[in-house]
């Protein structure tokens, strides 16, 4: 027995950059992104598609990259956390997470930000229930989701204002 299985040529465009590689069929998309392309922002938290830390956007759809084979992404256009910011600026979603303390350890954060970004693209003014349903596939063990929900509300422009002293201390 060896690590055989056919290898397959694939081409993907990630955050605007085109990558042509060969992969084994068994390679998960998340391992391809992390290990082959060294894009380390997409995380792995559960191996079973429950936690959403590996969430990315493939052809405009939010998916979990541990639940898709790399070979299935052949020809796809992919967005990962590294591709969100433009010219060094945080996006409104990222900024809201910062201002509302929507992250602690930061491990679920890339997936959480991708889910929130996907939600707001399709629904710019979500209700709290819609926000909760939109991040239901993203597990966070640090925040209890309270400040994450607040962050997404704020990013949608409907959030509560940050405390005055936060603005004052803003860097």
């Amino acid at each position: 027995m060896s690590d055989a299985g056919m290898v397959h040529p694939i081409t993907v465009t990630i955050n605007g950059e085109r990558y042509a590689r060969t992969v084994q069929a068994r390679k998960l998309l998340v391992h391809f992104i992390r290990d082959e392309l060294a894009l380390k922002g997409t995380h792995i938290g559960c191996d079973t598609g429950n936690c959403g830390a590996c969430s990315i956007i493939v052809n405009g759809k939010l998916i979990k990259s541990c639940m898709m084979l790399a070979v299935q992404a052949d020809g796809a256009t992919i967005e990962t956390i590294e591709g969100l910011e433009a010219e060094g600026e945080l996006t409104p979603v990222q900024r809201a997470f910062h201002e509302h303390h929507g992250l602690q350890c930061g491990y679920c954060t890339p997936g959480m930000v991708m889910s929130a970004t996907y939600l707001l693209r399709g629904n710019p003014d979500p209700s709290e229930e819609e926000i909760r349903r939109a991040i239901r596939g993203n597990i966070c063990r640090c925040t209890g989701y309270v400040n994450i929900v607040r962050s997404v509300k704020a990013a949608a422009g409907a959030g509560e204002p940050a405390a005055a002293d936060r603005a004052e201390a803003s860097r």
Binding site: A38, K40, G41, H98, G106
Partner: peptide
């Protein structure tokens, strides 16, 4: 002046951009 205030976190920027360094990121 600063202790006692909700200063937004220094750590956030790298974590929000996927630039944290967690152990599996070490090579």
């Amino acid at each position: 002046k600063w202790s006692g205030k909700s200063v937004p976190r220094t750590e956030d920027r790298r974590l929000l951009k996927g630039q944290g360094e967690f152990t599996d990121d070490v090579w």
